[in-house]
Simulated scan of single mutants.
Amino acid sequence: MGRDAILKAIQKNKPSLIPLPEINLDAFEEPIDLLETFKEKVALVGGRIIALDAIKNIDSEIQKLYPNASKIISCIKESNLGTISISEKTNPHELEAVDLAIINGEFGVAENGAVWISEDNFPIRVLPFISNDLVIILNKEKLCSNLHEAYKLISERNRTFGLFISGPSKTADIEQCLVIGAQGAMSLTIILV
């Protein structure tokens, strides 16, 4: 079968859409401390949390954490650490040697320590994955309890590229050996401001 024949067969045999199930979201409500739960879950998945009183201290904190980083992309206006400038026109292949990327997170999810990031906060989609280390700046007031709440938040957005990041990249599916940085950053630091 050729490509066109395969696509026609798929289209012809496409099942009818069915409505999503109704979910009682009240069943997922828990009296938790969002901030403390978020911190615990980030640590559990291998990330690091740094809480700062003021955003003006970001550069000195990042320099302490990553003293050897020299090829840095900063996508936040509060940081002056960036040594590499990028735009939507930057060839992603030129970013293969980036030591550190600094981006804004939109909100965090206490249930699993994930942070929602979108291309509104970084111009090259591959940036969070190609950088050796990743720092996400997150407002500590922008936390939700669980993924049900999170999906409600992102359902109202413009349909652009976005994803949840939870900890550094890792896999343990090869010989059951944990490998950090398998498909992305070797470390994830979330700076709460």
Rank of each mutant, 00 (worst) to 15 (best):
M1A: 14
M1D: 05
G2C: 12
R3W: 08
A9S: 13
I10D: 07
K12S: 11
S16P: 11
P21L: 12
E22N: 13
I23S: 09
I23F: 09
N24W: 03
L25H: 12
F28L: 14
E29C: 04
E30R: 13
E30D: 06
P31T: 06
D33G: 06
D33T: 09
D33F: 02
D33N: 15
L34F: 07
E36S: 15
T37L: 11
L44T: 10
L44F: 13
V45R: 07
G46N: 12
G47S: 06
G47M: 06
I50A: 07
A51H: 10
L52V: 15
A54V: 08
I55R: 05
I58H: 00
I58N: 00
E61V: 15
I62S: 00
Q63S: 14
K64T: 13
L65I: 14
L65V: 05
Y66E: 01
P67I: 06
N68R: 09
N68V: 06
S70Q: 14
K71A: 11
K71I: 08
K71D: 03
I72N: 01
I72P: 01
I76L: 11
K77G: 02
S79G: 05
L81R: 00
G82A: 06
I84H: 01
I84E: 01
S85A: 09
S87G: 05
S87E: 02
E88F: 01
E88A: 13
T90P: 00
N91R: 02
N91A: 10
H93C: 08
H93I: 10
E94M: 04
E94Y: 00
E94N: 11
L100M: 09
I102Y: 00
I103F: 00
I103Q: 01
G105I: 09
E106A: 08
F107C: 13
F107A: 13
G108V: 08
V109Y: 02
A110N: 07
E111K: 12
E111N: 09
N112K: 10
G113C: 07
A114C: 09
D120K: 15
N121T: 12
N121L: 09
F122H: 02
D133K: 06
D133L: 02
L134C: 09
L134T: 05
L134R: 03
V135S: 01
L138G: 05
E141H: 08
L147Q: 08
H148K: 10
E149A: 15
A150Y: 05
L153V: 07
I154S: 15
R157E: 14
R159Y: 08
R159S: 15
T160M: 11
G162C: 09
I165E: 04
I165W: 03
G167K: 02
K170V: 08
K170P: 02
Q176F: 11
L178D: 05
I180G: 06
Q183G: 06
G184L: 05
M186P: 00
L188H: 02
I190P: 04
I191H: 01
L192N: 04
